[in-house]
Amino acid sequence: MIVNKSVVGIHIISHEAHGLLAGKIANEIKPEFRPRHWFETLIAICEHDDRQLNFKEKDYLSDMGVPMDFNEERSSVHEVMTRMQRVLKAAGDKSSWVKLLISYHLEFIYAHMKADSKRISRFFTEEEKARGHILEQFKVSDKTGRTYYEVLRFCDRLSLILCKDQAPEAERLLEINTSINGETYFIKKTENGVLTITPWIFSATEFELSVEERILKETKFTSNQHFETVLMGSKPQPKKWLLKKSEG
């Protein structure tokens, strides 16, 4: 989960909501930048971070009883393996194309663990073979498949920047990443709070995005169950942004 703090309280955005926001971003991209099998690609983007929050499997509180942002969590090899297998199973049940893109994404996130875990290293070796069969099925090279994955990576990163309120003030540029068509993308917040992306790869000259967050006035919890009860009992609220093409 994504955790932000303010004077109001703790703001919680689920990874599922973040994924949906990534899908909304993708839906605004010009057709010329969209890979083949676009509908399945949208599904992969929307669901790329699903099945993360599970209070029965994991403690989401720090030693001080404060909800932890996903960047603060430390996952074991077993937890990572369980999640990867679960996500790939769900993706494969929908579509081989969805599974292909999710597989690339899991590699992007967890490949650094291969050096320290033979189990994860073996997993990705097998996954590379599985991707090969899918690529052959769709008559697509690995290079092309990875090019298509860049759309997911762009939308994922931009969604996280928005969810984490990372767009800098004073109209300073923040790099999103180098992804679609090999371009490096930047985000900037104008004086009136409007966001602009350069280069602009969207169909409309301006559009609105939103994600649901839950704001908790309590900042510390006695147990995971206590946190879950308060979180699930809170009302989702929309967090919105206006994105507009730069006039310059």
Rank of each mutant, 00 (worst) to 15 (best):
K5S: 06
V8H: 12
V8Q: 11
H11K: 13
I12C: 08
I13F: 15
S14T: 15
H18W: 06
A22T: 06
G23T: 07
I29S: 07
K30T: 08
K30S: 15
P31H: 08
E32T: 12
W38E: 08
I43S: 06
C46D: 08
D50G: 03
N54M: 09
K58L: 11
D59F: 05
Y60M: 10
V66R: 14
D69F: 05
F70K: 09
F70C: 08
N71I: 11
E72G: 01
E73C: 06
H78D: 14
H78P: 03
E79C: 02
T82V: 04
R83S: 01
M84D: 02
V87K: 03
A91P: 03
S95H: 12
S95I: 02
V98Y: 09
L100Q: 02
L101D: 03
Y104Q: 01
Y110K: 02
Y110S: 04
A111F: 07
K114V: 04
F124G: 00
E126R: 04
E127W: 04
E128A: 08
K129P: 00
A130D: 03
I134A: 12
I134C: 02
E136H: 11
Q137K: 15
S141H: 09
D142M: 05
Y148I: 02
V151W: 03
S159V: 01
C163F: 03
K164D: 11
A167H: 00
E169Q: 09
S179M: 06
N181F: 06
Y185R: 10
L195C: 04
L195Q: 13
F207M: 05
E208H: 14
E208S: 13
F221H: 05
F221N: 05
S223Q: 08
H226S: 15
F227S: 01
T229P: 01
T229I: 14
T229V: 11
V230G: 03
G233M: 09
P236E: 13
P238T: 09
K239V: 03
W241C: 02
